[in-house]
Design a protein around this nucleic acid. Structure first.
Lengths: 202, 202
DNA sequence: ATTCAAATGTGAGCAGTGTACACTTTTTGA
DNA sequence: TCAAAAAGTGTACACTGCTCACATTTGAAT
């Protein structure tokens, strides 16, 4: 079931991934600004020009790394959501997974929301995450667990959830990680509070 | 009351501000990455090396621009808060001012949370905003308008407010400005909902 | 008014960057 | 086996941030 790829194609993908890995490691180590194509090519025993057989430009390379980070985030969220039961717990699990990712890979997280002029793949990836969240919210509404009003409707709830989670995540990466009250229990309290704001009384 | 400055000092400050303005305009126009010291010096009829009499490095220049953006944000918030009455309305006004700023100056806002390795002034400025927010929250608590619990205490509320507002603001700058449900009324609804979560029943 | 030092601005140049292009080498498929 | 396609190289260009010895201007004390 390995999707029948020709060996040449697999080799190509491998070197492509090697480049991505080396560049990613360099970003994690020295920041986005510290990424140098020459350093990457040196480390891989390539000539600088060789990288341009795989990526049209530096921005394209970084975009590809960004895309892989988004994939990792999305699967991390998906796994945590899948192992939770009920709309409330699933939404909470998704939010915590998001925040944990930011905490665990702050540089990656920062990179992901570091939009370049040519922000194409980025928008797509974010839409994926957005749709997943919207799916959770919609499910909760349809099952009657979440309630809406005219002004606080489905879109508003989705925005609210995303903003809260993203805000906490960003603050964890930029501000000192141990800001007063940024403990895991505090974060869970906040998220539960938000969710409770649109959960039907039992 | 003009703080008695020598003319030489004023001239120095003026050229310094000229450099800051030119660089800032260039960032707004072409993004942070598009900022070139040579282009700035060209525009001001200076030699490239001249800028180094005013700023030790490019990072220092950008940091100074960042600091001025923070100042603008802080005063914008302060004004709006000052023209509101009561803890609830003041907190709401501050949040809306924050979000409006991000909406109005997305590139500036993005720049402000674009931390470089040497993030010194940044931390200070953010602490200022944080303290202002904390001040509002604390005032509301002491006047009995806001209520706390053991887990949802002062720090938690502060974090919650900041994260929500910052999250909405960031999403407004990165994602398309007209995301479904990101209207002004929706945003106000969300903020009121959050504030209601720690407001004493009347 | 003279003088001397500090401040300000300059020109040349270094090391490093992303990138283009003609070139060679390797791999592939008929 | 052989030509075409793919992969990799070396050189070079324009650009970057930045340094430093030097020229110019300014400020103030003599």
């Amino acid at each position: 079931m390995t999707h029948e790829t020709k060996p040449s194609e697999r080799r190509r993908n491998k070197t492509r991934q090697d480049i991505l890995d080396a560049a990613h490691a360099m970003i994690v180590e020295r920041g986005v600004e510290g990424l140098s194509l020459r350093a990457v090519s040196d480390q891989l025993d390539y000539s600088p020009a060789a990288l341009y057989r795989h990526f049209g430009s530096k921005d394209e390379l970084v975009d590809a790394i960004r895309a892989q980070c988004f994939e990792r985030l999305n699967t991390a969220i998906f796994q945590r959501v899948a192992s939770a039961n009920g709309a409330v717990e699933q939404l909470l699990a998704g939010g915590l997974a998001y925040i944990d990712f930011a905490r665990q890979y702050p540089i990656d997280f920062h990179l992901m929301f570091h939009f370049a002029p040519s922000a194409s793949t980025q928008a797509e990836n974010r839409q994926t995450a957005m749709r997943a969240l919207l799916f959770l919210v919609r499910g909760g509404i349809e099952s009657g667990v979440f309630v809406t009003t005219e002004t606080y409707n489905e879109d508003a709830i989705t925005l609210h959830c995303w903003a809260t989670v993203h805000g906490i995540a960003i603050l964890q990466t930029t501000v000192a990680r141990d800001e007063p009250g940024a403990t895991v229990t505090t974060i869970e309290t906040i998220l539960r509070k938000v969710i409770a704001g649109f959960t039907a009384a039992s």
